Simulated scan of single mutants.
Amino acid sequence: MSSSLPRPLPVALVGIGKIARDQHVPALAGSDAFALAACVSRSGGIEGIETHATLEALLDARPDIPAVSLCMPPVPRFAAARAAIAAGKHVMLEKPPGATIAEVLRLRQMADGAGVTLFASWHSRMAGGVAPAKAWLADKRVRRIRIDWKEDVRKWHPGQEWIWEAGGLGVFDPGINALSILTEICPGLLHLTAATLTFPENRDTPIAADLTFTGGDDVEATAGFDWRQEGDDIWQIEVETDAGPLRLTEGGSRLFIDGAEQEAGTLGEYPALYARFDELIAGRHSDTDAAPLIHVADAFMLGRRVAGAAFHD
């Protein structure tokens, strides 16, 4: 890290919702690289941490804080990131990095022009089994991929109306986690060819999606995302190769090759994200891979819309 920056680096957390409390706050508490110095929230802050009602108020009051982590929903995130970059802050974006691909590309241009780091984070890529899966697949021929990503929306997104509004992504909010793993372990291999999206009659975003991809004549790939799951969550990716099958389960935290469980990383997704943010700032680089979001955009472009029953939280 640059000698002009303090260590640990003060960071502000913007948007104190479920993901911030469950993941970001504990990760920062255990970090040697960062110290949580302030937060922005209109609905309650974090005990013992300086709280501001708006990002503008934070930027005015704390010019000494060099980095911000944005955890608000995707639609308002562009304006917040733009303001932070204009103020010379390094910025970490919770997934998805924006409501549109154009936003992400524009933010990258702004960050490059301002000489600050922009990190579009994909937490599921940091799951313990993902890196060893990518390494094992590097010299294998992929023949088939099957993704099943199914959970109960009432369990994981209780009362979060923004996910049902335009720009909120609906079932792609968790589904993009699977796509982030897919584009990490098989980079550049696939593109979407068809999609069926099921929309509750009273909502603007889908509750379920079935996707079909191709990577050539001999590669088949499908994905099923569903928020109507009852019972245990299913977060699984299966890959058939010329050297046998690979399976990632529990969101990528467990890896099996030919049925045998492999050693996986243990750092944790969000601690690993902040370690990566630290590396990027130190090297004065940005990381804004939009590949998972491109698949989602393609699904909305190609997708056949199916009407489903009304959803009530």
Rank of each mutant, 00 (worst) to 15 (best):
M92K: 14
Q160V: 08
W136Y: 11
R154Y: 13
R146C: 14
A111D: 07
R108K: 13
L137M: 01
A83S: 15
E94Q: 10
R154M: 13
Q109N: 06
L107H: 02
W149E: 02
T117F: 02
T117V: 10
V130Y: 00
K134M: 10
K140F: 08
V116E: 01
V104Y: 03
M110Y: 12
K89T: 05
G88D: 09
Q160C: 07
M126D: 14
D148G: 14
Q160L: 10
R125Q: 12
R144H: 09
S124T: 15
G98I: 02
L137V: 00
Q109M: 13
A127G: 12
A135Q: 13
G159C: 09
W156Q: 06
I147P: 08
E103L: 04
A120I: 08
V104I: 15
K134T: 07
A114M: 12
E94Y: 01
R154S: 14
A131S: 12
V91G: 02
L137F: 00
A102P: 05
A127P: 13
G128A: 06
L105Y: 04
V153I: 14
G129D: 03
R141I: 11
M126W: 10
P96Q: 04
A86S: 13
P97Y: 00
E161P: 03
V91A: 01
F119I: 04
S124Q: 15
A133E: 03
T117G: 02
K140R: 13
A120M: 09
L93C: 02
S124I: 11
D139F: 02
L118W: 02
R154A: 14
